[in-house]
Design a protein around this nucleic acid. Structure first.
Lengths: 343, 343
DNA sequence: ATCCTTTTTGAAAGCGCTTTCACAGAGCTG
DNA sequence: CAGCTCTGTGAAAGCGCTTTCAAAAAGGAT
């Protein structure tokens, strides 16, 4: 029923290899022949069968994105950047959501076997070595977004700088007791690489150091996840340790939002009683008036997608990793604006 | 280099058809033979080549989801529901984001030709008839989420009821001048089906009618998109038409958030000066304390995915469409809680 | 043991492309 | 005009599975 390359060949009075040649813009086809074939294609409304082509070329024209949570605004925004680029490049995008460290294993296990995609972008973590090796054996390039790993092409921001900027800002407003909430220091499945949360803490500590304030581990808490609930819980812990914090720097906007909610519940006014700064600059941040460190999330995705497509074409990519800039976005969760206006 | 079915067959001393049979759990293989084959598979670390299998079976084990914006929290949440179900069913999910009515055409054009997916879920709109026909010819089932279309299996909520509930709530709090902001009455490419925004308006008007309040078209505005910016702009229009609104019902939470922002900018207090109710109950709504009509977004996705997989297996689905319940979630953007507490 | 069913099994034919390889012609050279 | 190199083209061989079809093996009944 469906029209195949044979039908076209017959209609044009040529062999199938010739049809294939014009299909693939392969040179060495006489202009007149090419024309005849094109006409036959048009007349029959022929569309090459992708499955057959895939088998023959042994690729799938698809790149996979593996992320932990489709609930994470950060990851979804990176995904957006990836999607835009890929769509334009004519590649399909299939998503793999892990949701738990356990599912991550089985997912990568499956993924690294059959050729379900020609390239892979993983967001916010590093696959274990054995998976990386397997991908390499299959010639499936993988690039990481939002995570720095020397072994693999990765695109990321300078998280130390980000943490530094945030803390510096708070310091500049006169805060001295500044808490820090991160997601976690170690990844759930310990596979190496630089944890963004830990890097941001480095920046935080560095700023503190420069200001001559000794680092106090009691001012740091882990939320585990980037969620409002966990953020609120961590804030509760931190705020009830007996230290009198005047500000909290959170490793992500979601955590920061949780902090704000907890503060609101406790009757603490922001920024008067507690200053808060987040990280990421997700859409919600602007609604909430949250001062934050902006990462170019879409651009991160775009770059990752671009690199992976290069790699897929077998090109040696020299600039194997790529660092994007961060930027402090001042809104009103720290009173900075109010302060300025008062002058 | 990679091990094929032939290698396994040779190793097990059987024909490839037998290997294929054990692979596909096809009965009629003697227990002993099956065992031998399984052992060979194990020993060689054989994994069937998906591409070959796909060509042979002419399917791709993938369902496509086409949505308009990856930026829409609503759509992403539906996507989540889809993803969860599909992952569990062992199907891949590839996403197609349209971003504009024009891209929608070309996207569906491509999609409806080659077999890039075995089934399709489209969110929040109806493809034009010609595409539907093409999909039908290729036996690619399509189901719609968040949109009701008699021609195709669809899962949706009772939007009229939702609009009614929201308005009734406002009415119950004593509001008489209630504005309504919807996205649009007609879809950008006019392909039929029931626009949710229009349905919600019906519910709004019905509630008004029951309360004996004449419908005033000057209290209705269109935002065009479900975004905060557009919502704020629409609120501005509405609030400056000279009618003294005390409440606004928005066709989505994003729009409602925009309304809140505009109000905040204008120094209107919520809920004291202006009550706002939204629709969807996206995560942001709870942060913002927005009273809203909740749709089971994830569940919507799940159902759509379930239906499409049935259809893919060639099963005749009787319950071709499915309506999910809505529910009013009262928070504090209408003063309802405050009112209750005062009693 | 013989004949007739059932199971099991392997050879071979697809699935619809891409790609290799060899062969016509065409175009040059000497 | 023989000899050679190119260019354009088709036949055929994959790609690695699934699936048909017919034959072989295994049971059962007599």
């Amino acid at each position: 029923m469906p029209v195949t390359i044979y039908d076209v060949a017959k209609a044009a009075g040529v062999g199938i290899s010739t049809v294939s040649r014009v299909l693939n813009e392969n040179s060495n086809v006489r202009e007149e022949t090419r024309h005849r074939v094109l006409e036959a294609i048009e007349a029959l409304g022929y569309k090459p069968n992708i499955l057959a082509r895939n088998l023959s070329r042994s690729h799938v024209q698809t790149v996979g994105v593996v992320l932990s949570y489709l609930t994470s605004p950060f990851q979804v925004t990176v995904l957006q950047g990836i999607e835009r680029f890929l769509a334009q490049a004519g590649l399909d995008l299939t998503i793999f959501s892990m949701e738990s460290p356990k599912r991550q294993e089985t997912l990568l296990e499956n993924l690294s076997h059959g050729r379900r995609c020609d390239g892979l972008i993983v967001i916010s973590f590093t696959p274990q070595e054995r998976f990386l090796q397997r991908f390499q054996r299959y010639h499936i390039p993988v690039v990481i977004a939002d995570f720095r790993d020397e072994r693999i092409p990765s695109v990321f921001v300078d998280n130390v700088e980000g943490g530094y900027l945030a803390t510096k800002h708070l310091l500049g407003l006169g805060h001295r007791k500044i808490g820090y909430i991160l997601d976690h220091t170690e990844p759930p499945n310990g596979s190496g690489g630089n944890e963004p949360g830990a890097d941001r803490q480095r920046g935080y500590q560095q700023a503190l150091l420069e200001a001559g304030i000794p680092f106090d581990p009691r001012l740091v808490a882990e939320s585990g996840l980037h969620s409002r609930q966990r953020g609120a819980a961590a804030a509760e812990v931190l705020l009830n340790r007996g230290e009198l914090l005047t500000a909290i720097f959170a490793a992500s906007d979601m955590i920061a939002l949780g902090v704000m909610e907890y503060a609101r519940k406790k009757g603490l006014r922001i920024p008067d009683d507690l200053a808060v700064v987040g990280f990421d600059d997700i859409e919600l941040a602007s609604f909430a008036g949250l001062t934050t460190v902006r990462q170019p999330m879409q651009e991160m995705g775009r770059q990752a997608a671009e690199i992976v497509t290069w790699l897929m074409q077998g090109e040696k990519v020299l600039r194997t990793s790529c660092q994007l800039p961060v930027e402090l976005v001042v809104r009103d969760s720290c009173g900075a604006l109010a302060l300025l206006e008062r002058r």
